Simulated scan of single mutants.
Amino acid sequence: MKLPSGQLSRRPFQEEPTMDDLAQSKIEVIVTVAEDRKANLKQIASELQIRGLELTAEPLEDLGMITGKALEMNLDQLKIVSGVTAVEKAGTVQIAPQIPMFSEVIDR
């Protein structure tokens, strides 16, 4: 693209995203199901898959949770499934390494 001064733009041409690009932009989500709908967890998981959720594990029946990946633009579609109480982006958890207590260091 040429600018009015005749210089080329520094911004390269961007093509429309391909299906592969979209598949790579999926985010991990946790879906919580209402307590009174836990018995229907597998049915709810199937409905979520129809609406774009890719399951990453078996539904957690005791917890009433379903984990998977979905495009961010599909999160609203997941939230309207009957029995779903929440759709949240999954975070990462890291446990800190064990650090010796000050008194343990002195005793050595």
Rank of each mutant, 00 (worst) to 15 (best):
Q98G: 07
I80T: 10
L55H: 10
P17A: 15
E28C: 03
F13A: 15
Q7H: 10
D76A: 14
E104V: 02
A90S: 10
Q98V: 13
E35M: 04
V31G: 08
S103F: 01
N40K: 02
L41W: 02
Q98S: 07
S5T: 09
T85N: 10
S82C: 02
V105D: 05
A39Y: 00
R108D: 13
K42T: 07
L48K: 03
T85Q: 13
K2R: 12
A57Q: 14
Q14S: 11
G83D: 03
P4Q: 06
K42L: 07
D20C: 06
L71P: 01
V84P: 05
G52I: 12
T56E: 13
I99Y: 01
I30A: 04
R108S: 08
G91E: 13
E54V: 14
M73P: 01
Q77L: 12
A23V: 14
I95E: 15
A86H: 00
I27H: 09
V33D: 01
A90W: 01
K42Q: 06
A86G: 01
K79E: 07
K38D: 00
N74Q: 11
P100W: 00
D21F: 07
K2V: 03
E58F: 08
D36P: 00
V81M: 06
P4L: 13
L48N: 04
T92Q: 11
L53F: 09
A39N: 01
D62F: 14
I66F: 06
K89F: 00
Q7I: 08
L71H: 10
L78Q: 04
A23W: 14
R37S: 03
S103H: 02
D20N: 14
E104Y: 04
L60R: 13
T18I: 11
T92A: 10
I27P: 05
I106N: 03
P12A: 15
V93W: 06
Q24T: 06
M19R: 15
T32P: 00
E61H: 12
Q7C: 12
V105H: 02
L3S: 05
S46L: 09
D21E: 15
V33R: 09
Q77S: 15
Q24G: 14
R10S: 14
D20R: 09
L78W: 08
N74P: 05
P59R: 11
P12S: 14
T56R: 08
S9E: 07
L55T: 07
G68C: 08
D36W: 02
F102C: 01
L71E: 14
M101N: 06
G68M: 11
Q98M: 05
Q49F: 01
D62T: 12
E15Y: 14
